[in-house]
């Protein structure tokens, strides 16, 4: 494992911890898209189907369990916890799941490396992860008021994707036959979706003003 991959995983982990911190300690999910969180739960559930049958490393198994567990507990918190659900901005979080899930499923059925249940589900999870942030980005744009933790959560998620691209570049040059078009293209699209957010994030950081996305 190279430094970019590890940094990417740690950034991903940090994003989840920031979100859990916000939800668990402040008991608020204001500005957080439940749709995006449900899509992430679906992403991990379909990607880690082989968690108990295909052993890679202790590290991988633990991280998979953390991502699965945190994704589902975040969804549970927002839907069921009596304090947290009150802060959920339902009226602005209106993105429809099936606009995202259905095209990804169809694409995975059409474009994959191998037509088996596991590989198609794995491919589906890659496509879905690429666009799962969309409801969150739409919600941020509609919410005039982005709090620090929400801004940091989205920034860390974007940073995780950018680091994964560096990881692929590194692996391409250091490992023989390391070519993965499906992963790369969906990963690149996923990272590009953050470009706009990154721009305004750095602007607000540089000018030391509150983060706000233009309508």
């Amino acid at each position: 494992m190279n430094i970019f991959r590890l940094a990417g995983d740690m950034t991903h982990l940090a994003s989840v911890l920031v979100l859990l911190l916000k939800i668990h300690t402040i008991k608020s999910c204001a500005g957080i898209s439940l749709k995006t969180q449900e899509l992430y739960a679906l992403v991990f559930a379909s990607r880690y189907l082989d968690i108990f049958t295909h052993y890679v490393s202790f590290y991988n198994t633990v991280m998979k369990l953390i991502f699965l567990g945190s994704a589902f507990s975040i969804v549970w918190y927002i839907r069921r916890h009596k304090l947290v659900r009150r802060s959920y901005d339902k009226d602005h979080d209106t993105f429809r799941h099936y606009f995202i899930v259905l095209p990804c499923l169809i694409l995975a059925l059409l474009i994959h490396e191998k037509f088996t249940f596991r590989v198609v589900m794995w491919t589906f999870s890659l496509y879905l992860e690429a666009v799962a942030i969309l409801p969150q980005l739409v919600l941020l744009q509609r919410t005039r008021n982005i709090d620090n933790l929400t801004g940091q959560y989205v920034f860390l998620l974007g940073a995780y994707r950018a680091l994964y691209i560096l990881n692929w570049v590194y692996r391409y040059f250091t490992e023989p036959h390391y070519v993965h078009w499906i992963t790369w293209i969906s990963g690149l699209i996923q990272t590009l979706l953050y470009a706009d957010f990154f721009y305004y994030y750095f602007q607000s950081w540089k000018n030391n003003v509150k983060l706000e996305l233009p309508a």
Partner: peptide
Amino acid sequence: TSNGSTKDEL
């Protein structure tokens, strides 16, 4: 490690 699998990634 490679040969058509990035499944060692998360």
